[in-house]
Write a protein that binds this DNA or RNA. Structure first.
Lengths: 217, 217
DNA sequence: AAATATTTTTAGTCTAGCCTAAAAATAAAT
DNA sequence: ATTTATTTTTAGGCTAGACTAAAAATATTT
């Protein structure tokens, strides 16, 4: 498996979570910042290796083998993120690019020893679940903050967007994983929310609330 | 810098330690398990980038910039080896291949945080010195066991060959870094040595003794 | 010093992974 | 149901980094 093939599998995996149908050439090209024609080439190669099922003009789906490989890459990515934050004191908005490189290191032993060293974490610093060595993912119950009605309280458990601009915004508002948020009120006009966090009131837009995962309490 | 360019720089660095003259095309090709013609190509490319000085038929030398880059790769390689052994419980004969991959991860912050996390080690698990962030290497005084006369005692401080077969041989003889070795006798015929290690006598060939670095005590 | 052997470079191929431009298939709109 | 727009694929190129085979330079013998 080349570096590039691994990236394709990973992207197809992430896109296939969002839709039940086949993942389209265009969707892959957008995420990879490449061209649809390049995607067609690679997808045909992956199909020959039986990592994806490809039907012309219909998009691709992962085979069991392909999904497992994608899960192992996601596993490595998220374990390394935990390492960077927990052991090396990186902040949660700095880890992505480095983990993007580390996820390609090939050594099952390394991955599993790292997992052990970190205490078998089940979630990465953004609240995303970490597949175990069999590829199993512990289901996390969560909903978007934007779906919580006024008056309810919830704990912040994850982010949908993990871009550094969004994460830094949350830092500025002192919202972190584990923070308790009370939805004080919801504005009908723009669906913005007023929250109580650490006894301070903060107003966040609907866009923000639509990128924050919470668990009702 | 590509993965491949980094590997060339690293190999040229290691070869240039062994000889004062330019590093030859053939020597590089042998280490890289590639062909001399491929080396010529790459070396010309590195020369254009001013990482090496290249004179046709005369071999190459690293420029200051090239040497620094090579040192940073060696630094990463050795730091990761320490990580694998000290934190993840790898044995010293298992780390090379994984470190060979990890050395290419590009993040100064990661390298320096890792260095700190490990307690700023000065040597890797094979006794090789770790360059600091400026590229400085602490000079380690050491000599080959084969040069020690009978009757003297020395501490094992490093290995010249770090192939897993050699390292596993040392494990079997219970010789580790830090072990105290007493040269009981030296055979004139084949230059083999009889050593006392942990109150046990062991005989090692001249080839073994020529790959073990020690410090007299 | 000339002849031979070795090393190194050049010239021309090949593959992976990308690209552009054009053709073909599918989807949307009238 | 055509026409138009969009998406996807095909065809043909390009570059990095490897290769082989042949030519050129250097080293070694005699």
């Amino acid at each position: 498996m080349t570096y590039s093939e691994e990236n394709y599998l990973k992207v197809i995996y992430h896109l296939s979570l969002a839709s039940t149908k086949g993942v389209t050439t265009n969707a892959i090209a957008n995420v990879m910042e490449s061209k649809p024609s390049s995607v067609t080439d690679m997808v045909q190669k992956l199909a020959e290796k039986e990592l994806v099922i490809y039907r012309k003009y219909q998009g691709v789906e992962l085979t069991d083998q392909g999904r497992f490989m994608a899960l192992m890459i996601v596993r490595k990515h998220r374990l390394w993120e935990v390492f960077l934050v927990d052991k090396l004191d990186f902040s949660w908005d700095e880890v992505h690019d480095v983990a993007e490189q580390l996820e390609h290191i090939k050594s099952e032993k390394l991955t599993n020893k790292l997992d052990e060293f970190l205490g078998f974490p089940t979630e990465d610093p953004h609240g995303d679940p970490i597949p175990d060595k069999e590829g199993k993912i512990a289901k996390i119950e969560k909903q978007l903050l934007s779906e919580i009605p006024a008056g309810r309280r919830a704990i912040c458990v994850g982010v949908k967007d993990s871009s550094s601009t969004f994460l830094q915004y949350l830092d500025k508002q002192q919202i972190a994983l584990g923070s308790t948020l009370e939805v004080v009120s919801k504005e009908d006009f723009d669906l913005s929310l007023t929250l109580r966090v650490d006894n301070k009131e903060v107003t966040v837009s609907n866009k923000i609330a639509g990128n924050l995962f919470v668990k009702l309490i």
